[in-house]
Design a binder for these strands. Sequence first.
DNA 1: TATTTCCAAACAAACGTTTGCGCACATTTT
DNA 2: AAAATGTGCGCAAACGTTTGTTTGGAAATA
Lengths: 339, 339
Amino acid sequence: MSDKPTTIKEIAKILKISVSTVSRALNDHSSIGLTTKMRVKKLAAELNYEPNQKAIQFLQGKSHIIGVILPELSESFFSTAISGIEDVAYKRNYTVLLAQSHDDADREKLLVEKMKTQRVDGLLVSVSKTTSTYEHFEIFKKLNIPVVFFDRIPPIKDIHYVASNLENGTYEAVNFLLKKGHRTIGMINGPTTLVASHERKEGYIKAMISNRLKFDPSLIVSCDLSESGTIEVMNTMLNHRRKPTAIVTFNDYVALFAMRYTRSLELEGIDFVSYANLPIINYMDYTPIASVEQFPYKQGKKAADILIDLINRPKNETGTEQAYFNVVVDSELIISNIK
Amino acid sequence: MSDKPTTIKEIAKILKISVSTVSRALNDHSSIGLTTKMRVKKLAAELNYEPNQKAIQFLQGKSHIIGVILPELSESFFSTAISGIEDVAYKRNYTVLLAQSHDDADREKLLVEKMKTQRVDGLLVSVSKTTSTYEHFEIFKKLNIPVVFFDRIPPIKDIHYVASNLENGTYEAVNFLLKKGHRTIGMINGPTTLVASHERKEGYIKAMISNRLKFDPSLIVSCDLSESGTIEVMNTMLNHRRKPTAIVTFNDYVALFAMRYTRSLELEGIDFVSYANLPIINYMDYTPIASVEQFPYKQGKKAADILIDLINRPKNETGTEQAYFNVVVDSELIISNIK
DNA sequence: TATTTCCAAACAAACGTTTGCGCACATTTT
DNA sequence: AAAATGTGCGCAAACGTTTGTTTGGAAATA
């Protein structure tokens, strides 16, 4: 039968010393003699001793679980981010409790409750598209449990977050197109309410300016990101007095819609640049000629690291204003090697 | 400041009764009077009492964590499966510890170790492509910790598993093509070593037989599933004395490769049927006309349910041979609505 | 009335580990 | 020689909960 795992007690009994001595020996406490330490460690190794995490966590009143709530696991951006989150969590001895909101605000609220019940030590959130109120996160603030937002960040103050800087990537993208000879560059942007839309626009403008070109606001159009919406704005673009020879799209889906539409019109020669969300893009016949990479793995890692730092930070003195982590990960233009 | 969560002790103190009474009252133990129960429950509700899971789990010597090791989170099949696993885990009060092998056997071995250290109560595994030995799972058997395999199942005896029945889905697929008028149906199958390849072949054959058609083995070809491999076998197909008018491919990637290749040859009119792995398929210009759906969500749920059942099964009498769960989830042909 | 049965609640141990405190002994300082 | 300091280790409490055993008293039986 399966012998129960070795405990510190058994080691103590065998060595005829107290449990506390064993505990301290294993933790390299300074008040334990070298010989005793050696003996303890040797026996521990022989017996395959592994500390009972549950006991420790219970004792310390910490769950050593970090909650992660994100919109869709099946979106490659998020599943890649999770990968980074987990690598960090594992290294730092935390367990990840995963949950998906499926972009539903109500479900998100429910999940936040669940996380509280599970007594997570910290929370990592990428908010759902439909979330418009943010009180459900207040509970955590009250309980002094840190929350770090990443990628999809609520428009409120006093929060920790990790997000990508889309401005610089967009700058690079537009710059790349300009260097390639394009002079009329369109942009299919997302809803103007999104921070991400704003950043894209800024990057676009900066690229134009730094190339001493005039910025034509009518070349940037907002889109609801659906297929029909994309076709609609594509029509606007194509009927523009200055028809773009290149278009930057909000994401890969929009790029695919737009490219499919131009092909259906038997239009050729428009260069597309997008933002990397889909790995599958490599399997396709027609792909954007470049992509702005947002490094979801890196972002996930960073966010998890910050969260765990926050969990373990020394007790913040009451009254003292604490600092908020606002980390921005630069994006980067990746030029496709498919010609 | 954040008041610490309410404990059973505090309730006891306030009500001037013992902790054990409170505990039993909350758990509806029979030996507690109705009035006491009411009083306890009322106060518990008022104080927002939530049992400290860590304490319970520690006391019971259970971690209430199930480990999940799978090849790639970013593959939609797996991320969908995870979703099902988590739903079940949550409902049954378990936490999911997630890990990816990235289809690397060594990493998988490492992760199994990690899971052991974390003292998971059970393990859910979809084995990596490169795994060829399976001793690392033996440790769990020895420790009496249940392991359930799903989707990618090792070819060994005496294991629990959940897998999809590809035979029936393939049968439906081929049948569908036959009904559509096709008489020469090719199949790009995977490596013959895979169970999944075998099942596809069987389904194919059964469909032919039940339609009273002769089965031509040369119409089924093995493929390493790479793009070049796909092109190679496509050439074989296209030069076959009986050129197929429809082809069933091992997965969506192979379908995409094959379809791209036929288009590059400016060949038209071959119908493709594939197995649903990629949601993105809907965004593409050319898609298979039908897909065999494997219900990863359902499979994940089922696997998790079985695992947790196994964890909580009454102690198996030593010596008594225990039964192994071998669950097979039927696949189903989904006909694409994109014409 | 004396004894048994039963109900409701209390007591106390247990789970594995960490940690503040204290004790004994040895060494160094006054 | 007495006092202070240091070293190495043990004692016991603590974390929150469950659960086997015990207790007190009331009701039921003899």
